[in-house]
Design a protein around this nucleic acid. Structure first.
Lengths: 195, 195
DNA sequence: TACATTTTAGAATGCAAGTTCTAAAATCTA
DNA sequence: TAGATTTTAGAACTTGCATTCTAAAATGTA
């Protein structure tokens, strides 16, 4: 009945999300987004309404695709401490180790708590990550230890993501992650002994 | 020989820094900065050159005044684990607990690693904080333990600052800080026993 | 007190960037 | 194949904002 779209929505949202991750929402110009996505402004506005609409779609794509997948793999129903450690270490490997951080973590700083175009994606991600970590810990070191450790691990997660934009040595951060998980391994051994 | 300035430079830089901390560099308009500082744009440009100059001055004021003071008080030459814990807990109290985070931590996300108007303040702060933490730990739990814990604590610090902009419960973060320091207290006891 | 100099004040300017608009191209359906 | 409809293309427009500019006000010095 009419002309069909010439672009792949997923690819466009991935490219746009990457541009937003690098430059932030405000500093990613439409010209930059045209370059990143390969679309011209007319197509962007036709497909997503405006810049905010493109951002919302890109963030949702990032959370439902990227974040959810990573949490499922590294903090899912059958993940243990070893997998959970990979959640952290994988942040320090491509594609996240390029020095631009994480779209969600960056958006927390750019948009804050104010209800807006990033609130949903941020809230959803915070819940996904916290609950994922909590479930692994509850399984591995018991509910008492989990209660104590969950927020520490959540804070470590966002600390790593923030400093990954600062030029801080990836190796130093890997060391900190390893040290944290060595402690959790000890916690697990202790917990298993009791039973 | 000429008209004198009618404003207090420190007060203006504190107000400007606060505006930048809330809105970020890009989103703090000159109009907003006029409101925050009480200066009119003519005075801002006369005194600081441009918006970037005002930001540089405000960031330097923030680092040399606020950050340096806090590190000296909570991670200085005669600080122990108790004081260091206050470095974290005080972030969760006024004036930093207003939900706008820390100017330096926010700038890490907004400006990244690219050399620019925030690089100096960021680098200086990262060094101050890391070395302050390292010196307390070396004293309190010994060099081996310190080596292991420093980066974990640095990451916890930035995790707290980042999530303090996310609406995450301050109480939950306090709990995580307490749990971390309980572990360090145990480390100190262990370390003191050996000697 | 008068002059020189700097700050304050706010209007005017110029530009960057988001958005809208017009026309051409493509594709589906009848 | 023709018509209807949607997408692509990019020029034109608008607005918001950083910056500049002009003039008045204030203050130190001679």
């Amino acid at each position: 009945m009419a002309r069909t779209r010439s672009f792949d929505r997923d690819a466009v949202l991935a490219a746009a999300g990457n541009a937003f991750r690098q430059h932030g929402y405000r500093d990613a110009s439409i010209a930059e987004l045209e370059r990143a996505t390969g679309l011209v402004s007319g197509s962007i506005y036709n497909a997503f309404g405006d810049k905010a609409g493109l951002f919302r779609a890109a963030l949702e794509h990032y959370v439902h695709g990227f974040v959810r997948q990573r949490v499922a793999a590294f903090a899912g129903a059958d993940a243990g401490l070893e997998e959970l450690e990979q959640l952290y270490l994988s942040v320090l490997e491509p594609p996240l180790s390029d020095g631009y951080g994480c779209l969600v973590n960056n958006s927390i700083i750019e948009f804050g708590t104010a209800p807006g175009i990033a609130s949903d994606g941020i809230a959803e991600t915070l819940t996904l990550v916290r609950e994922g970590i909590a479930s692994v810990l509850a399984r591995e070191i018991g509910s008492v230890g989990a209660e104590r450790e969950v927020m520490q691990l959540v804070l470590l997660y966002h600390g790593v993501l923030t400093l990954s934009r600062s030029g801080t040595s990836l190796e130093a951060m890997r060391g900190a992650v390893s040290a944290t998980f060595e402690r959790l391994h000890a916690s697990r051994a202790q917990h298993n002994k009791k039973q």
